[in-house]
């Protein structure tokens, strides 16, 4: 595919979608039930003008960053432990496999009881969504370290701790980077749900607030922004991941 095609095709598809949206909305004829693209743009301009929209975005990104980084801070060491120790793996893997398929939303009632109404339940939901993919990919990255590297470590008489720090950790970094990117996608989805209760700003709050005041155009503003930010975060992590892989010698 040529470079121009790569740029033009998604633009054309987006234009087609927006046009179809506009036509359909005009047919429905109710800005409340189905706001056309034009009124969504006007709504965006309106909220952006007061600086409120920017405040919502910053609030969401902050909560997301804390929950996601927390998930890494807990998930990577735990994944390392499970990858290194057969005993730890056989003890904890079943527990993780049972907890993992539970939607983070299911924990919401308990989170609000434990952490109160406010920031923390939203952060905890993002954390819950991020931590499992990080644990699992880190574990498998550690287990897939080339056994030859470990033989080299042994022939040079490296200690267990030295081998972990000098060989296993750097060798599994490309695999961990993949996990970090997967986790960013899964946990960003849940920031909205986390903000639908108990907070007074953020994009999830914006959706609920807009619904309560029957501003469906603003609901769509929030939805589009959530999607765009999700795409942006994913792209940033893809770049970081590619850098790690390049620096690591193309997973030689």
């Amino acid at each position: 595919m040529t470079r121009t095609a790569r740029i033009l095709l998604p633009l054309a598809a987006t234009a087609l979608l927006v046009t179809a949206w506009h036509v359909a909305a005009t047919r429905v004829g109710s800005t409340l039930l189905f706001p056309p693209p034009g009124s969504v743009v006007l709504g965006a301009v309106e909220t952006a003008a007061g600086g409120r929209l920017f405040g919502h975005i910053v609030a969401s990104l902050q909560r997301f960053a804390i929950g996601y980084l927390g998930g890494i801070a807990i998930g990577v060491p735990l994944g390392l432990l499970l990858g290194l120790s057969v005993h730890a793996r056989s003890a904890f893997d079943p527990i993780i496999q049972v907890l993992r398929p539970i939607s983070p939303i299911a924990w919401f009632p308990l989170f609000t009881l434990w952490f109160g109404i406010g920031e923390l339940p939203a952060i905890a939901i993002v954390f819950t969504a991020a931590v499992y993919p990080v644990i699992l990919t880190t574990t498998s990255a550690v287990r897939e370290v080339d056994p030859l590297y470990l033989k080299v470590a042994r022939t040079f008489g490296d200690s267990r701790a030295g081998t972990v720090a000098r060989i296993i950790l750097p060798a599994s970094l490309p695999g961990i980077a993949v996990g970090l990117r997967i986790a960013v996608g899964t946990s960003w989805v849940f920031i909205v749900a986390g903000e639908m209760l108990g907070v007074t700003n953020g994009l999830g709050y914006l959706i609920i607030d807009a619904r309560n005041s029957l501003r469906t155009d603003l609901v769509l503003v929030a939805i589009v922004i959530i999607g765009a930010l999700g795409l942006g975060i994913d792209r940033a992590l893809r770049l970081a991941e590619a850098r790690v892989r390049r620096h690591w010698g193309g997973a030689a």
Binding site: D146, L148, Y149, K151, V152, I167, P170, A171, L173, H247, W248, G249, G250, A251, A252
Partner: peptide, 10 residues
């Protein structure tokens, strides 16, 4: 070793 075992990140 036959397959070198060099560390690609170093």
């Amino acid at each position: 070793f036959q397959d070198y075992g060099l560390f690609p990140w170093r």
